[in-house]
């Protein structure tokens, strides 16, 4: 696995929304059918680079996420490949019905960027922290859901999205995050990436929590605990094969996500394992509550989603009697 040292202090700090925004521009250079839409949040979700470069293919919808999704469906039905970009809480939060029927049931080739997802949105508070978006997107037939772990992977997910003929949701974040994967790190939709092997337990994470999990694994290693770390970047159809392998090997799974523990990655992992190879699972994430204002760091600590707590949960699980 090609990875930069997750502990290196000089890793580039880039938000995943940047990886998405830059890549849409590249895709549009090659494909004239690529069009971009936003809902009065161009710069925030990094659609402004596209808007500057391709003003004729950019459509500003105003604060109207429902209309944006419907218009995108129409564009797609008539042969275009729309990328619609807004905050995750509003798209898919507000326009879910349009996404369900016009995009999924209607098989529209539309790519959705939900930016500002997770607790790391920080001071804006609960209303702006998307913590349910994986659940509502993962449940939709025909929808592909990616939750990239860093900006480099967001780039690969965006390229992969363009290759899929159908609706795709790309979950992005606002906050800068360490970029620890490289051009060479494999990204195969539907195939979980085994970032670190291990035998005592396996941490399965997505998004920014993948890096936290690698930090946790490094800390555990100091205490003689050998934890595997798996990046589950595709959430629409979780990779049951990889899950079964690590479940057989470690016997314990810990899931970590910037999302409610119901309906998201944790649920998806439990669903897959219960049919293939049930082992105890601990889910780390929001325990069915709303977030609040604070810095990203404070919030991850308060809600138990930082490396320190991930390591603690792993240790507790290992020492618990079976």
């Amino acid at each position: 696995m090609h990875l930069l040292d997750p502990l290196a202090p000089d890793l580039p700090q880039v938000p995943t929304r940047d990886g998405f925004g830059k890549t849409v521009v590249e895709l549009a250079e090659k494909d004239l059918n690529v069009v971009g839409l936003t809902a009065d949040v161009a710069e925030s979700v990094r659609m402004h680079w596209f808007a500057e470069k391709f003003p004729d293919r950019f459509f500003q919808c105003g604060v109207a996420e429902q209309n944006m999704a419907g218009v995108a469906a129409g564009l797609a039905y008539a042969g275009k490949m729309p990328f619609i970009a807004a905050y995750g809480v509003f798209s898919p939060g507000r326009n879910w019905d349009q996404i369900r029927v016009a995009l999924c049931y209607g098989d529209a080739n539309v790519k959705i960027e939900g930016s500002h997802t997770g607790l790391t949105v920080g001071p804006d508070g609960a209303t702006h922290q998307a913590l349910e978006d994986i659940a509502i997107m993962r449940v939709l037939p025909h929808m592909t859901v990616f939750a990239p772990c860093d900006a480099m992977e967001a780039r690969k997910a965006t390229i992969a999205a363009a290759k899929i003929n159908g609706p795709v949701y790309i979950r992005c974040s606002r906050d800068k995050a360490p970029q620890f994967t490289t051009e060479k790190t494999p990204f195969e939709p539907g195939k979980a990436a085994m970032l670190k092997d291990g035998k005592d337990c396996a941490v399965v994470a997505c998004g920014a929590m993948v890096h936290e999990s690698l930090l946790a694994a490094a800390e555990l290693e100091k205490n003689g605990v050998d934890a595997a770390v798996v990046n589950m970047h595709t959430l629409s159809d979780v990779d049951g094969k990889t899950l079964e392998e690590i479940a057989r090997k470690t016997g314990r799974i810990i899931t970590v996500e910037e999302h409610q523990i119901v309906g998201g990655l944790g649920s998806a992992v439990c669903e897959a394992l219960s049919e293939k190879y049930p082992v105890p699972v601990k889910r780390i994430g929001m325990k069915m509550e709303f977030g609040e204002s604070g810095t990203a760091k404070e919030l991850l600590e308060k809600y138990g989603m930082n490396a320190k707590n991930i390591a603690k949960v792993c240790r507790e699980m290992i020492s618990a009697k079976r």
Binding site: G125, A126, T127, E292, S293, L299
Partner: peptide, 23 residues
């Protein structure tokens, strides 16, 4: 963190707020 004055007004956090808003 912990302030009644959430980034967007919250009915849950601050008495006198009739509705949580932001969206």
């Amino acid at each position: 963190l912990g302030s009644k004055l959430q980034g967007h007004p919250s009915k849950k956090w601050l008495p006198g707020i009739e509705n949580s808003s932001g969206p």
